[in-house]
Nucleic acid binder design. Structure first.
Lengths: 333, 333
DNA sequence: TTGAAAGCGCTAACAC
DNA sequence: GTGTTAGCGCTTTCAA
């Protein structure tokens, strides 16, 4: 059947403790012994059983990743960042989709803790009280990636969403626009309601422009929603001339909606997005967009997690990555 | 510390076997006993240790997923399909990226087998001999998703790439084109070299058109490659008037390349793709594309895997899903 | 430098 | 219906 550490020990005429030592790179093994054991391992094609090891050592070298939806490019980027760093530190990843559903998030947390993951990277667009409570009860560290928890009780990696949004909208203001629409993703998501929307209000206010609720729309973050939103906005008595979109798909929807109705971008309307996925360069005009560096966020979050799991001290538990705006043709330069 | 099955047993005045029974839903427990145990479990917040369970039962209820690159939309779709079905059957997923690198594939296989996964879903665009050998040695079932192995020794889920490509190119032929280019993804990938390219040659041949090697280009499957390919093709003495692209990004690259040079699609050139990701509807003109149903392929592959892990008999180990072409504006109707 | 032995927390006979 | 017990394959003291 499967060959165990015991088989190797017997064949090599040593104890299983010694085999364990060579497998784990323990230095207290005479070179000749090590060589002998290694040969037997090779010959028998011995492969350590990570489950047994996990039970004995209480470490599984796997981390849980809870993500809203892996088929959504933005989260997939983050997942890649997480996985790359995990691999670098020899961790494997248990990946699961929550669909941003609290119940699933809770149950996934539980499942993963049951599987004895050594840590968890959590992406959640809305950290509810219940979720917050469950996370606090976790026996292993959890870091939030691209997700905000109002209480700042968890290590996290983000950018300054408020400031980034503020700057983006300011670009539109600088181009002379007075009627700027904000097409947001779901306002149930903290980043949208607490940062992007607040920034939108603040920047207009700072510019002495009154906020017109008609210019604020919250939709599911999809291409079709973008197209529909354009219809809605453009049929207003005093339609907007510039748009701040919560995501690339939303932005592209607006642009195509406009173009399909004979409008020119950026001549007639200007659009700026918040995401900068690879889609941004694949439309005409190419999108100007706040860069949401999900790969980096994932990678840094995972790195942070390794430190915490490793009980290294970390100076800042709430990492704010620098943000920037990628300027392209969807706004006038 | 952490509460174990033993703690529950003690508190409930039963043996750990009884606790194990109620946890596992075994019917041979008196309702009153079950109730008592359940209460204690609740009170103590007992959470079964899946690692211990895995060691004892030799089942981990987790499956490995080896994928070229999760940040690539097409694979992410597949991953989502896999995960959805896995969840449905109470499996978790260990996800890892291979970057289509044989060495990584081999090492990932090994790692996952070490972690005692109950099965593996493998996506590989090029099943090399070495990989094939390793897979054959696996103690747990492996199913290929959207990936072909020449020998047909593994269960797999695919569409009929040859036939689908044949039909797609035929559409171009029917529209009167004689100069049809094939912009392929890497020819190192079996699907590209063995099916798409062969179909391209065959369909031309069947139409009495000689294959012009100048009209065949193989590039990395990216938007930029598509744009570059357009440059190459359009500078030919007798440039192509229609294009069969191996992926949506390639197709969009061609279209934008053409449009940026004043060509109209589909009036001046026609383009048909092979993928049909959500990108297909997000370009103007929208892409006509062979549908590569990755979500379904992933889902069916995972379902197939559950059957095999469960030792149910499966009638067909090589599933060929139906294919279809989504007709949109990038070709004349 | 090496070995013996006690678990890790659970499942699965087997007995009662 | 319930309890006893022997592992599952490994890590980790503790001795030698």
């Amino acid at each position: 059947m499967t060959v165990t550490i015991y088989d190797v020990a017997r064949e090599a005429n040593v104890s299983m403790a010694t085999v364990s030592r060579v497998v784990n790179g323990n230095q207290n093994v005479k070179p000749s012994t090590r060589k002998k054991v290694l040969e037997v391992i090779e010959r028998l094609e011995y492969r350590p059983n990570a489950v047994a090891r996990g039970l004995a050592s209480k470490k599984t070298t796997t981390v849980g990743v809870i993500i809203p939806d892996i088929s959504n490019n933005i989260y997939a980027e983050a997942a890649r960042g997480i996985e790359d760093i995990a691999t670098m530190y020899r961790y494997n990843i248990i990946l699961a989709n929550s669909d941003q559903n609290e119940e699933k998030e809770l149950s996934l947390l539980d499942t993963m803790l049951g599987k004895q993951v050594d840590g968890i990277v959590m992406m959640s667009d809305a950290v509810t009280d219940k979720l917050h409570q469950s996370m606090k009860h976790s026996p292993v560290p959890i870091v939030l990636a691209g997700s905000v928890d109002d209480t700042n009780e968890f290590p996290s990696v983000n950018i300054d969403y408020f400031q980034a949004s503020y700057e983006a909208i300011q670009l539109l203001l600088n181009n002379g626009h007075k009627r700027i629409a904000f097409l947001s993703g779901p306002l149930a998501y903290t980043i949208n309601s607490k940062y992007k929307l607040e920034a939108y209000k603040k920047v207009l206010q700072d510019a002495g422009i009154e906020v017109d609720e008609q210019l604020i729309l919250s939709e599911e973050s999809s291409y079709d929603s973008g197209i529909e939103a354009w219809e809605t906005f453009s049929s207003l008595d005093n339609p907007p001339t510039a748009f701040f979109a919560g995501s690339d798909e939303l932005a592209i929807g607006i642009i195509h909606g406009a173009q399909d109705h004979g409008k020119k971008v950026p001549e007639d309307i200007e659009v700026i997005s918040f995401e900068d996925s690879k889609l941004a360069r694949m439309v005409r005009p190419k999108l100007t967009s706040v860069v949401f560096p999900l790969y980096d966020i994932g990678a840094v979050a995972m790195r942070l997690l390794t430190k915490i799991m490793n009980k290294e001290k970390v100076e800042e538990k709430e990492v704010i990555l620098p943000h920037r705006i990628e300027t392209r043709q969807s706004i006038k330069l």
